[in-house]
Design a protein around this nucleic acid. Structure first.
Length: 447
RNA sequence: GACCCUAUCGUCUAGCGGUUAGGACAUCGCCCUUUCACGGCGAAGGCCCGGGUUCGAUUCCCGGUAGGGUCGCCA
């Protein structure tokens, strides 16, 4: 039988990083086994059921490259579906749930209680065979011991999560349920429900949770909990995907950077770790930087232009060749594209803003004479290219009896406003003689 | 409170009875260098505790501790 897995998020207008990893693991398992990845929207809570909220999830999955074989085509609950087991919005499956509740009542396994419908659960422990955790025997808690039955339809007529989740997995022919470990305890209820319908439950794989750096549960409000923030800050989806797959899973051969093909080939459930992992932004940033370095020039430019646009700088107005050469000097220098506008912004403004500390330490009267000499040398430098500029600067330094760095630093701060930046000679070449001289003059004025 | 899961450097992890306990991120040195990065070399840093089992436990078992999860007419 072919593998069928699903990702079943609730549209809250937010895609949790842990949810994204759950989706990734499901997707990887489907691709690894040649099975199907189903996307189902659990929108039984009508109050938060908006198209926009669903779109956030779809966009997040698309961004990560997790395509679904079955599920909604867009965020509209009444929109088109892809696949034969739909509808894939629970808000459209009311008939199915009503029929299944009827079935349970007819079997004497469910009953009305204060306007709601409760499922008759027995008190025996339930054995959960889990592909990740192993065999788990779930005993009843003290409260459940007092009353093991649970609500499957609310008094307002809305079916409850446990019911719809099981019914849909059953109706959609889901073979493997890969989900967060927070559902492990609930699984006893789900297994009981499957049996009540006369079916065997699917195979379960409960994956560990992603925790905050301090070990607490990562909730909606926590820094970095939303996948959207990485999208907005210009992280590369392949880097985020790579980082996520390394949380709770490992290829076992000390490799960290994994392409999609390798990931699919290597991923399997038995190797998934059993303990929770803490989210480490520093490592994500490192991975992102690795991927940025390997980016082809075209895509690098594209991402860079987008980053500037987000920062409110329209590069479209500048000369395309200038933009391309300017951005190219910033390659490999920043870990995230969101850092780029601050890093290379000096290229695109005539009003260089000086970093107070950098300017205060080098744009001082003591350096004025030397910078003036450099300005004079640059005024007659031809061609104005990196190699020539380097030669000229070094000759000027030699003539003054100082080390090149004595000129390099003031020159850099004068032209870029910052102590750190792209290769000096290359950035001077890109800026061009006219801009460089103008900037040196401005710096000299304030010395 | 009850029930369930988990436990290797600060973090992510390799390990599956005998290893100098390996790698990566972060940290700290040194080198490279026009700054910053990158890169190279190196350092520091770990098997939660206590019992067993065994000739021998990081590894297997039990207990404790700690962390996480669940016990909703939320999902």
């Amino acid at each position: 039988m072919s593998v069928r897995v699903r990702f079943a998020p609730s549209p809250t207008g937010f895609l949790h990083i842990g949810g994204a990893r759950t989706a990734l693991f499901n997707w990887l398992y489907a691709r690894h086994t040649g099975g199907s990845f189903v996307l189902r929207i659990e929108d039984t809570d009508a109050a938060r059921n908006t198209r926009e909220a669903v779109e956030v999830i779809l966009n997040g999955l698309r961004w990560l490259g997790l395509d679904w074989d079955e599920g909604p085509v867009n965020g509209a609950p009444d929109g088109p579906d892809k696949g034969d087991s739909g509808p894939y919005f629970q808000s459209r499956r009311g008939d199915v749930y009503r029929r299944r509740v009827r079935e349970l009542k007819d079997k004497g396994l469910a009953y009305d209680h204060e306007g709601a419908v409760k499922f008759r659960m027995d008190r025996r422990p339930v054995v959960i065979p889990d592909l990740v955790v192993g065999e788990v025997t779930r005993e009843l808690t003290d409260r459940e011991q007092a009353d093991p039955d649970f609500v499957i339809v609310r008094s307002d007529g809305q079916p409850v999560f446990h019911l719809v989740n099981v019914v849909d997995d059953l109706e959609m022919g889901i073979t493997h349920v890969i989900r967060g470990e927070d559902h492990l305890s609930n699984t006893a209820k789900h297994i009981a429900l499957f049996r009540a319908f006369g079916d065997e439950p699917p195979l379960y794989g409960h994956i560990p949770l992603i925790l905050n750096p301090d070990g607490t549960k990562m909730s909606k409000r926590d820094q970095g909990a939303s996948l959207t923030t990485y999208l907005d800050e210009g992280y590369l989806p392949e880097a985020v995907r790579n980082y996520l797959c390394l949380l709770g899973w490992s290829p076992k051969d000390n490799r960290e950077i994994l392409g999609l093909k390798e990931m699919i080939g290597l991923f399997d459930l038995p190797q998934v770790l059993r303990h929770n992992a803490r989210f480490d932004l520093e490592k994500l940033k490192w991975l992102n930087a690795e991927y940025v370095r390997q980016l082809d020039p075209g895509r690098f430019q594209e991402c860079a232009v987008t980053a500037f646009k987000r920062a409110g700088v329209e590069l479209d107005r500048c000369d395309a060749g200038y933009v391309r050469r300017a951005l190219e000097t910033c390659r490999g220098k920043v870990r995230e594209f969101s850092e780029l506008p601050a890093y290379g912004g000096f290229y695109f403004t005539d009003e260089v803003s000086f970093d107070a500390e950098a300017a205060g330490s080098v744009l001082i009267p003591d350096n004025r004479e030397q910078l003036q000499k450099l300005r004079e040398a640059f005024a007659v430098t031809d061609p104005f290219d990196a190699a020539t500029l380097e030669t000229v600067l070094k000759q000027t330094a030699a003539g003054l009896g100082v080390k090149p760095r004595a000129l390099v630093h003031p020159c850099r701060v004068a032209c870029t406003g910052a102590a750190a930046g792209p290769s000096l000679y290359h950035l001077l070449e890109v800026l061009g003689q006219e801009r460089v001289l103008r900037r040196l003059d401005r710096a000299l004025e304030r010395m």
